Computed example of a mutant assay.
Amino acid sequence: MTTTILEKFFYICEKVHCYSTVFILTPGFLIFEMGVVRPTLIEIYKIGVAKQLLHVFLSVFCFINVTGNMIMSIISDCSINKTRRQFTEDGDFCELCKIQRPPKAWHCKECNVCILKRDHHCFFFSRCIGLYNRRYYLMYLVYIHISMVYSTYYNYYFVSSIFENHGLEMAIFRLLNPFLRYIMREETSIKDIYVFFFLLNVGIAIWSAILLSFHMRNVFRGLTAHEYREPSKSNWKENLLSVFGTKWYITLIWPFVDSPVIDDTDFIVKNR
């Protein structure tokens, strides 16, 4: 009984986190950058119109790719039921789904279904990452990393502009060690929130870089997350096509393109 309640609680938390990230946090971050950071930097550093337009274009481009890949990863169905195909060779039988599944298809306890070429269950997307959405997940990591590095650069100058002398360093120390606030007897202000956002940029940039390097290494080697210790399979070009599809060059800049993937069970999945 307790386990069931906890499972339901974590399920609700996962869904709330997922959709709040898509519809609140990510758009909110863009609004903050465009409405607070950009005007301040324009006023202080007298940025010209051309640079302003370039900054807006790059910000919107990153935003579209971050949210687009996130949404496509969430709505893509990676369950074995999508193929409507019977697999009789080299696979095994799932006692829970009562279906013959192909190699690399695993049953997910959270999704309660077998997932084709299952990589892992992503808490942030509240979905399994598998055959049909792995490229969206990877491109999300690419663009969230680019966005965080890009915004960290500008946010550093933004938060530096509102502090004097060594004020920024002390504000960072106060956030990392709250006990310093009692010693220094300084009240919390809006500046501390700006510093928190800056540190969040740095943290997400590091986090996304680690995840991206791990998963891309697996992609080049033709492995999933729980196979990462196994030897490489096939060659790296085939491995890339099995994830990013036949139109891989467009997937790098546009998340909504249809790019059929070639699975290692020797069939092409179309009409996704």
Rank of each mutant, 00 (worst) to 15 (best):
T2L: 08
T3P: 03
E7L: 04
E7R: 13
F9K: 09
I12N: 06
C18W: 08
S20W: 14
F29T: 14
L30K: 03
L30H: 07
I31N: 00
F32K: 00
E33Y: 13
M34S: 02
P39G: 03
I47L: 13
V49H: 08
L53S: 06
F57E: 01
C62N: 14
F63K: 04
I64H: 09
N65R: 10
I75Q: 10
I75W: 11
I75Y: 11
D77Y: 05
S79H: 04
N81A: 11
R85F: 05
E89G: 00
D90W: 04
D92N: 11
C94G: 09
E95A: 15
P103N: 03
W106M: 12
E110L: 08
C111D: 15
C111A: 12
V113D: 08
K117P: 04
D119R: 01
F125M: 15
G130F: 10
G130K: 08
Y132W: 04
Y132S: 14
Y137E: 14
L138A: 10
M139C: 14
L141I: 07
L141M: 13
I146N: 08
S147H: 11
M148T: 15
F158R: 02
V159T: 13
F163V: 07
F163G: 02
H166C: 08
G167N: 07
L175S: 02
E186T: 15
E187A: 06
I193M: 05
Y194M: 06
Y194R: 00
Y194W: 02
F196R: 02
F197D: 00
I206G: 02
F214I: 15
R217D: 13
R217Y: 09
F220L: 15
F220Y: 15
L223K: 14
A225R: 09
H226L: 11
P231Y: 01
S232F: 03
S234H: 13
L240D: 00
L241C: 07
L241T: 12
S242L: 01
S242D: 09
T246V: 15
T246W: 10
T246K: 13
Y249C: 11
Y249N: 04
I253S: 04
F256V: 10
V257A: 11
P260S: 04
P260R: 02
D264G: 01
I268P: 01
K270I: 09
